[in-house]
Every structure is written in C-alpha cells, then in structure tokens.
C-alpha cells in the first residue's frame, strides 16, 4: 500500500508540473488571444475565432496525439523521449488558452463603457486604462469561470496518459495492470480530489479577498 502511494505521489509530481506549466502558459496566452478575438481587424478576429472553435471543438486527447505524432509522421523528424513532455505542455497550453480567451472576453466585454470614458477624460492612456481600471475588475468577474477551468485542468492532466507521460493516472493504470488491484485508482482519486479541494479553497480565498467591492 505504502509502495502504491509513493509511486503515485511521484506521478502526482508530474501531474502537478503539467498543471502549473499549463496555467503559466495558458493564462497570459488566453488574454492575448482574447485581444485578437476582440480586434477591430476582422481578419485577425476571424482567425482567433477559428482557433478557439477548433480547440474547443475537438477532443484534447486527440490534440495531444496530433501534437505528439505530427513531427515524426508528417515531417519525418525523429523525436526524443523528452518530446512527449513538450507535446503535453504545448497541447494543454494551446487548448486551455482557447477556453481562457473566451472567459477573458466575457469579462472584458462586461465592463461598462463608462469606465473607459471616465479613464479617457482623466487622460489615462489605453494601456493605463486597461492595466489599472479594466483588468482588476475583469479578474474579479472571471474568478468563478476560471475556477471551473482550473478544476477541470487538474482532472484533465490524466489525459497525458495517451502519449505515455508518466503522470499519476498513467502510473495508476500500470500498477493496476501489473498487480491486479483496484487500490491505485482509489488512491489516485483521493489525490485528485484533495488537489481540487485545495484549488477550490485557494480560489475562494481570492474571491473573498476581492469581495471588498461590488461591480454594478
């Protein structure tokens, strides 16, 4: 039993790594994509729309496999063993950025135009207006949907098993197959659950911290 827990804990580290790297990539990238999506340039906006549509419209599992196999199957490159980790990060980053982009867009578009007008009359530049006036309010608004995504991400890290990344679920499956016991799945479930309980707790703390004001 202790053996199972230690092995899974090692897998959990990889899961956590995928989780954290995805957020580090997808949160800023999503903001960038939302800007392109809201761009006045119709062509750019259309491109972003297509991107989001593909990322949301096809399975993440399939995207991971395409990214993992494309270099060798399409371009004939030989990939190193390490590439599977790169593929997982690229896949998760690109996929989650699409979802975050739409969350940002919803948040940004919900800010009343009066906030921009007040800032303009006071002489703020566009950049100052976004950083100091708009974005802080956007963050407050999008915490609930972002929490949803982050919790889904914790569970989605298990999809990395399709390209044999040794994260927790992959490890659990291997032990189950080798030892013929269901225990690894139960332990993995507990780990996922505890991790998400932690995520939910942290997000609710952030939400509480921002509840000192309300947006009309």
């Amino acid at each position: 039993m202790l053996n199972i827990v230690t092995q899974l804990a090692e897998g959990l580290l990889i899961s956590l790594l995928i989780f954290a790297t995805t957020l580090i990539i997808a949160l800023p990238l999503g903001l960038g994509i939302s800007f392109v999506r809201m761009s006045k340039n119709k062509f750019l906006s259309f491109l972003a729309k297509v991107y989001i549509s593909i990322m949301r419209g096809t399975p993440l599992m399939l995207q991971l496999m395409v990214i993992f196999f494309a270099p060798s199957l399409i371009f004939g490159f030989s990939t190193t063993a390490f590439y599977r980790y790169v593929a997982v990060i690229i896949g998760f980053g690109l996929n989650y950025a699409a979802y975050f982009a739409e969350i940002y867009r919803a948040g940004i578009e919900a800010i009343p135009v009066g906030q921009y007008e007040a800032s303009a009359v006071l002489g703020f530049t566009k950049g100052q207006t976004f950083r100091r006036i708009i974005f802080p309010q956007v963050i407050k608004r999008i915490i609930p949907p972002v929490t949803n995504e982050v919790i889904t991400l914790v569970k989605d890290t298990s999809l990395a098993y399709v390209i044999a990344v040794e994260e927790m679920f992959t490890v659990a499956k291997q032990i189950v197959a080798a030892k013929g016991t269901i225990m690894p799945f139960i332990v993995a479930a507990v780990f996922y659950y505890l991790l998400n309980a932690l995520v939910a707790w942290i997000m609710s703390r952030i939400e509480k911290k921002m509840s000192y004001y309300t947006i009309k």
Partner: peptide, 23 residues
C-alpha cells in the same frame, strides 16, 4: 458623468488620487 463612473475597485481617496499620480 450622469452615472458617476467611479472606479469600483478603488477607495474614495484612490479614485481622487489615481489620475493626478498616474497621468
């Protein structure tokens, strides 16, 4: 403005101070 358009995330004092400092 008719609808004030104060910055909701800033205190009263910060609302008044923000532009003179930043702009």
């Amino acid at each position: 403005f008719q609808n004030f358009n104060l910055f909701p995330h800033y205190s009263v004092l910060q609302n008044v101070m923000e532009a003179p400092i930043v702009v």
